[in-house]
Nucleic acid binder design. Sequence first.
RNA 1: UGGGGCGUGGUGCAAUGGCAGCACACCAGACUUUGGAUCUGUGGAUCUUGGUUCGAGUCCGAGCGCCCCAGCCA
Length: 564
Amino acid sequence: MSETPATTPKNFIFEAVEEDLRTGRFSYVRTRFPPEPNGYLHIGHAKAICIDFGVAEAFGGECNLRFDDTNPVKEDVEYVEAIKEDIRWLGFDWGDREYYASDYFEQLYEFALLLIQKGKAYVDDLSPEQIREYRGTLTEPGKESPYRNRSVEENLDLFRRMRNGEFPEGSRVLRAKIDMTSGNLNMRDPVMYRIIHRPHHRTGDRWHIYPMYDFAHGQCDSIEGVTHSLCDLAYEDHRPLYDWFLDELGIFHSRQIEFARLNLSYTILSKRYLKELVENGYVSGWDDPRMPTLRGLRRRGYTPEAIRNFIEQVGVAKNENLIDIALLEHAVRDDLNLRALRVMGVLDPVRVVILNYPEGQVEELEAINNPEDPAAGTRKVPFSREIYIERDDFREVPPPKYFRLAPGREVRLRYGYIIKCVNVVKNDQTGEIEEIHCTYDPQTRGGYAPDGRKVQGTIHWVSIPHALDAEVRMYDRLFTVPNPSKVEDGKTFLDYLNPNSLRILSGCKVEPSLTKARPGDHYQFERKGFFCVDPDSSADHLVFNLTVPLRDTWAKIEVKQKGD
RNA sequence: UGGGGCGUGGUGCAAUGGCAGCACACCAGACUUUGGAUCUGUGGAUCUUGGUUCGAGUCCGAGCGCCCCAGCCA
């Protein structure tokens, strides 16, 4: 294997894998990404995906996709396709290695039989409540079940009949016979199989018993020849059990390594909570652009590259973490800055009339599509006597350091002319500014001042007769606190929902080149932010989602001024 | 009074006994036809405490703090 230290991320997992190869514990590398098909993938999963596929790739190995479908009560095919789609979108390929834990049900059953024969597993008739009581507590040892010492023959017979569906749900389970006094609760005779009379999305009604995670995962890894089974810290306590099953069965022994899951500030990454948001209508669905799901991020305008870069920057360790969402936002700005075409869009329009500009005249001005990418070329933008500008780009009483338009002041219209405000027309009743009257300097076409005079401010604009109407959905973080999963007593994460996480702007005006915008296209509205065309968008009703705003230095200055 | 894990600037990750570094954030400045981008710079960290060592974030002892585990969920 060739060394690529510059591109190979260095973390404790890579080091462990490297060591395993060096010491000969394994001669190849194979990992797996094991989603349960009971929900949609979120950015936390993206971390796991990047690690699972990344480790395999770095060592010339492969990563299997294996659906962990051992519980027909919770799982559904609906999620399988969505999960595959999201992984592909993120940019990973599992080739033809698409597996299901349910593919191995027969083999797992044989494994169970083997353990029963070895006297290492037994059928228990205790009720779920009794099992809990017998388990003991964190500080007190458990008690052995009265059914623990059944004969091998009786266990075999009972277990076969469990499989045949002869017993009601909850009446019996198969348990491993380990140690009811272990300090690790997972070792106190864990349940291996439970009875569930429910059709499975892949095996139909063939089974009446289903293996628990602990009895399935390690053996599936083993069957697939997975060398490194990378998972969440939560499974650290399960590793002794993972190892125990593999050792007792005497089969290929994968190595489980745990790392800390991703936590993101101002959001939640718990499947249960996300589901609650969707089901109770706090968001419009799993793909709501405010959701940290991959579908949500995609619709919001995040790119796979941005997400992968973000994950790489976050690193891999075992520390509990809360990643600043600003890092994610930085990653997407960084990526979009290089590729998004620039356009002009006025979100909160106010009319400007250029008094000395000939009525009916239209000029096609040249605008650069992307200053970061000369290959993106230029386009023509129509200019006329009446234009829209951003309401906030005009102040009757300009505060200090305000560079934009104000009575008697000049400002440059991007790629247009330098204009000067000469008058303001206000609504008699409301006092709201309805129209701003300006004059333009014909010598400044394109925005250049031949006399070399400095014009500090440059603002965006859209020609009124040529403007396209658009709806713009402005998104903000979903929660008002950095860590919504850690709440005050008596409150829930729902109490911290940001009421302003979505603001719909309906009267927006955008330049005519946007007629060719298609759902999924990324744009930068100059001076405002990166936007993405929503799937709801159509030719006669453009809809844009704010992906992330541009850094806004003026907003900072203004906040500071107000604080003084 | 059980078992497992983790403690490095505001956040995250490095430093594998030898000058505590990188990214994001923050602050200041330069540049600017996006108050964007870019560039430069400042400030700021090894949980505590003893020890080993020429030298400790790293090794050893003691303590403290935080997280996870009592599903027939994964």
